[in-house]
Design a binder for these strands. Structure first.
Length: 469
RNA sequence: GGCGCUGUACCCAAGUGGCUUAAGGGGAAGGUCUGCAAAACCUUUAUUCGUCGGUUCGAAUCCGACCGGCGCCUCCA
């Protein structure tokens, strides 16, 4: 299996530290607002990577942190005149709700920064003892000049950075690139006691602390958005490797941005849609398919047209799954036993996904499968039930469990309850009679009127079936 | 200025030296099935991969130049 490693800027063969186990850390949200659909891309692609590793048989310890103390949260708490902890708790809750709606699997660990302050303080103390961190009036900074590999992840050169620096002048720093490990408290801010007085941690230190505590000093995979490469991940490496004197992360993975009209979607530009907003218009499956149809590392434009096209693609898979369900219910064991090589599709899927999680090609394998199965269904009057059992299993294993672009267990489930479904079935029955009597105008009227209510009737060789828009 | 990503059909997008005279999705056109629809199936929709050169028996894929889009270098997935 190959993974593109930002550190080496090439694809590398993946070897986890412990066979059969993968330690994976993904930078999660700062909880001061709902996350947007661009953030969702990272969360979903990380989820798909995790699920594929599990599909391959790895036990994945998947960690995603919650940054619940930070400048933006404090700003929001002042605006809303609420305690910072309340703001953070509210948006953390919303974060989990939205992830669930997007069908992102629960993480093994979701550590919150404020639960790991002690570890961070110890880590900073170690760095200070080593002479790598320095305290100026209760602010502690990391001395970038003491870590001679600084810049190795982002390909930046310290001297060039200094030359082109547009960094805010801070008299307390020895070097403009030095970054805060510990920030002295200001009036009204959340704070903790520390050897340097009351204060709060800098942003970067939390990931070093939590990753090490939960997963170990060296982990297999650390992932996040492209914009975290510098300075965030660069700083994590500097802190962790200075403190522990061993490699922090073996494989660094970064997700491309979601753009709107070729411009990065971001909170500061204001050109964003929240994930929960998009979820009112499009299914999680369509959103996941949309992201899966592009390589995770590249840029991707966002628009309603593109999501519409993904929604239609998702329906194509659902249509097949529904046909399979009807066939399974019809349950007959006489019929042809089609010559169909299911294993080939599993092999093809694994082959392309093994190449740095090539989800676009993985999706293509699924659509090839959908087409091939549809063809067999339309070419044969009766098919043995085993064929449908196997076909369903493939969709479950690959399209549902790995990519999450279909939800088999939700098929045919009515959110409105059984009564409504029974009423629709009643109308279908009436319409069947009308059709037999050649009263097509009334039969069509029933179909059209139901359609206006969002219920679509389809006549097929399985009889009349319905689905809801 | 430094570093990185990117330019493939009407739209999105894979492929990065021969397996591809270029996957897959959407759209469009024609056909089959159907009382009609829908769904599904079949056919068509890039001799061509930003432009111009070069390397090679062979390139969308490698090299060079040029043109265009984007990002990071400051909080940001």
């Amino acid at each position: 299996m190959l993974i593109y490693n930002t550190l080496s800027r090439k694809k590398e063969e993946f070897h986890p530290i412990n066979p059969g186990l993968v330690t994976m850390y993904v930078c999660g949200p700062t909880v001061y607002d709902f996350f947007h659909i661009g953030n969702a891309r990272s969360f979903i692609m990380a989820d798909i990577i995790r699920r594929y590793l599990e599909f391959k048989g790895f036990n994945v310890k998947f960690t995603m942190n919650i940054t619940d103390v930070d400048d933006n949260i404090i700003k929001k708490s002042i605006q809303e005149k609420k305690p910072a902890s309340e703001v953070a708790a509210y948006y953390a809750q919303a974060f989990f709700e939205d992830l669930k709606k997007l069908k992102v699997s629960a993480a093994t660990f979701n550590p919150k920064a404020t639960n790991h302050i002690e570890t961070m303080i110890n880590l900073i103390s170690d760095l200070e003892k080593k002479g790598i961190a320095y305290n100026v009036n209760g602010n502690v900074f990391f001395d970038v000049s003491k870590f001679n590999e600084y810049g190795k992840l982002s390909g930046k050169n310290i001297n060039e950075l200094e030359a082109g620096a547009r960094i805010e002048i801070n008299d307390e720093k020895k070097n403009p690139l030095d970054f805060a490990l510990w920030k002295k408290t200001k009036e009204g801010e959340p704070s903790w006691d520390s050897p340097w007085g009351k204060g709060r941690p800098g942003w970067h230190i939390e990931c070093s602390a939590m990753s090490t505590t939960l997963l170990g000093k060296t982990i297999d995979i650390h992932a996040g958005g492209n914009d975290l490469i510098f300075p965030h991940h660069e700083n994590e490496i500097a802190q962790s490797e200075s403190a522990f004197e061993q490699k922090f992360v073996n494989y660094w993975m970064h997700f491309g941005f979601l753009n709107i009209q070729n411009e990065k979607m971001s909170k500061s530009l204001g050109n964003f849609f929240t994930a929960r907003e998009i979820l009112t218009k499009y299914s999680a499956e369509a959103i996941r398919l949309f992201f899966s149809q592009t390589y995770y590392g590249g840029p991707l434009n966002f628009s309603d047209e593109l999501l519409d096209s993904a929604q239609k693609g998702a329906e194509k898979i659902i249509n097949l799954a529904e046909k399979i369900e009807h066939s399974l219910k019809a349950a007959t064991d006489n019929g042809v036993n089609p010559d169909f090589d299911f294993q080939k599709y599993y092999d093809d899927f694994a082959k392309v996904m093994d190449d740095d999680f090539n989800t676009p090609q993985g999706v293509a394998v699924i659509f090839d499968f959908v087409k091939a199965v549809n063809k067999i269904i339309s070419d044969n009057e009766k098919i043995k039930i085993q064929f449908f059992v196997d076909a369903k299993k493939f969709l479950k294993d690959v399209a549902d469990n790995v990519l999450g672009i279909i939800s088999l267990e939700q098929l045919g489930k009515s959110s409105e309850g059984i009564l409504e479904d029974d009423l629709i079935k009643l109308l279908i029955g009436v319409r069947e009679t009308l059709k037999k009597e050649k009263n097509f105008s009334l039969a069509d009227q029933i179909r059209n009127d139901l359609n206006k209510l969002g219920i679509i009737l389809e006549d097929s060789k399985f009889g009349t079936t319905f689905k809801k828009r």
